[in-house]
Amino acid sequence: MKIGEIAKLVGLTPKSIRFYEATQLLDAPFRQKNGYRQYTQAHLQTLKLIKRARDVGFSLEECRTLISLWRSPCRKSEDVNKTILQKIELITQQINLLTEVKATLTKLSDQCPNNQQSTCPILSELLK
C-alpha cells in the first residue's frame, strides 16, 4: 500500500503517518526504487492502534508503550490494564483540576456586576 491508500484506510493524513515514522512510533516502510513508501499489513495494524489510542487521549509516549505491549509475546493482560488504569487516574486528576478551575471562574463571574462601569471585581480578584 502507498501512503495515500493506508492513510485513507486508517483515517489519518499522510503528514501524520510521516510524523509517526519520523518519531519512530511507526517502523519505516520499505522504499521502492521510485522512492514511494510501501506499507504492509503490520503498518496498517500499528496505525490503527495509534489512531484509536490517540482518539481516546493517549499521548505519543503512551502510544509507544501500548505498541510495545502489543508487540511483546511476553505481555500480560494485567500490564495492558495497568497502562489503561494509569491513564484513567490521570484523566480523573485532570477532571478534578478543571472542576476546581470552573468553580473559581464561576465565582469570579458571579462577582461581576456586568455593567458599563470601568471597575471590574474580576480583574481586582485576579490581581491579588
Rank of each mutant, 00 (worst) to 15 (best):
E89A: 13
H43D: 08
V56N: 08
E5F: 09
L12W: 04
E100R: 14
K82P: 04
E5I: 06
M1K: 07
Q86A: 15
L123M: 15
K128C: 02
C63F: 08
L90K: 11
L47K: 05
S124F: 04
R31Q: 14
T46Y: 02
N114G: 14
I91Q: 06
F58D: 06
E61Q: 15
L49H: 10
Q32H: 07
N34L: 00
T99C: 08
L97H: 11
L12D: 14
H43V: 10
F19K: 13
Q24H: 14
R52F: 11
Y20L: 07
I17Y: 03
I122Q: 03
S16K: 08
L127T: 14
A28I: 08
F19W: 14
W70G: 03
T92V: 07
L126S: 00
T40M: 04
N114Q: 12
D110V: 08
Q45F: 12
S77E: 00
P121A: 03
N96D: 15
T13Q: 11
V80D: 10
L44M: 10
Y36I: 03
F58T: 02
F19P: 01
L123F: 13
K51P: 14
A53Q: 14
C120K: 02
V56D: 07
C120S: 02
S124N: 15
I67H: 02
C112E: 07
V101F: 02
E5H: 04
I95T: 09
L97W: 04
G11W: 09
Q86E: 15
G4R: 09
V101K: 11
E89W: 01
T13I: 02
L49D: 04
L47T: 06
